[in-house]
């Protein structure tokens, strides 16, 4: 197709106007939360985690998590020379009150791994629900409709990360909501808010200005159990191969 001089002259002003809008970019901070504009995830920087348990306490305070149950918890790994494949993992009371001090002369390496729901894009837990009580929202958060849940616990068994439990009083499934009531109001999650070292960062994969994009490009980042192809969205920086 050829464009005549006449048509080019007609098109030029239109192109100039369009280019102006391209340069202006999208308007800043829309007044209303739009689900279609977000795709939530979390970044966990293992070398930054000090095992203080702030996140576990904050989660329980924010979400009324019953004692002995955890929407997030911290594990301490001890990988020694004799036990590379099956490391010693402890998580006393979910790491809520911290961990016993480790003396320097102990052999092997130690590190902390905070865990929570991975808000998988292709989650096994939502696929097995027989009544449509658990689902992934259009903004990428796996939630439970507790008025619909029967408490059959299929999802508890289906989650490969052990992130679900049956609430002892409500008798329905319960899990991390990625503080959906906070992130939809422009706040960060309770665990990220209370993390003193920035080891946990809420990230929005659909937001081009989110620092996660730069981080993913410049660090060795992995998700848990990638072989299961769950589409897990909790990214771990410097994840040790022994972590299960």
């Amino acid at each position: 197709m050829t464009i005549s001089r006449r048509h080019l002259l007609i098109m030029l002003p239109a192109a100039a106007v369009a280019w102006k809008y391209v340069l202006a970019g999208t308007p800043e901070s829309a007044p209303n939360y739009r689900k279609s504009e977000h795709w939530w995830s979390m970044l966990i920087d293992i070398p930054e985690c000090i095992g203080c348990g702030n996140c576990v306490r904050a989660c329980q305070a924010e979400n009324d998590v019953p004692d002995g149950f955890f929407r997030t918890w911290v594990e301490m790994y001890h990988v020694s020379d004799e036990n590379m494949v099956n490391p010693v993992v402890i998580s006393p009371d979910g790491g809520k009150e911290g961990f016993p001090a480790v003396a320097k002369e102990d052999e092997g390496k130690y590190f902390f791994v905070p865990k929570l729901c991975n808000h998988c894009a292709d989650s096994p837990c939502t696929q097995v629900c027989p009544v449509g009580a658990t689902f992934i929202t259009p903004d990428g958060v796996v939630l439970i409709d507790q008025t619909y849940c029967l408490g059959c616990a299929y999802c508890v068994q289906a989650c490969p990360y052990g992130c679900r439990y049956i609430h002892p009083e409500k008798k329905v499934a319960d899990k991390c909501t990625l503080c959906y009531h906070r992130i939809t109001k422009g706040l960060t999650t309770a665990c990220c808010e209370s993390c003193p070292t920035g080891a946990r960062q809420l990230a929005d994969l659909k937001n081009p200005n989110d620092p996660i994009h730069e981080f993913l490009k410049t660090h060795s980042v992995q998700v848990l159990k990638p072989q299961l192809a769950t589409g897990a969205k909790v990214f771990y920086n410097a994840l040790d191969g022994s972590v299960r």
């Binding site: 305070a61 449509g132 689902f135 008025t147 909501t177 959906y180 939809t184 706040l187 808010e193 209370s194």
Partner: peptide
Amino acid sequence: SFGEYGHYRGNAIRDIAALPVRFAGH
């Protein structure tokens, strides 16, 4: 609201989003 976004109750999202906030934020 069932089926508004998928095979679940759309209002469940709004119910969860309306929960009270305990940490005020920095």
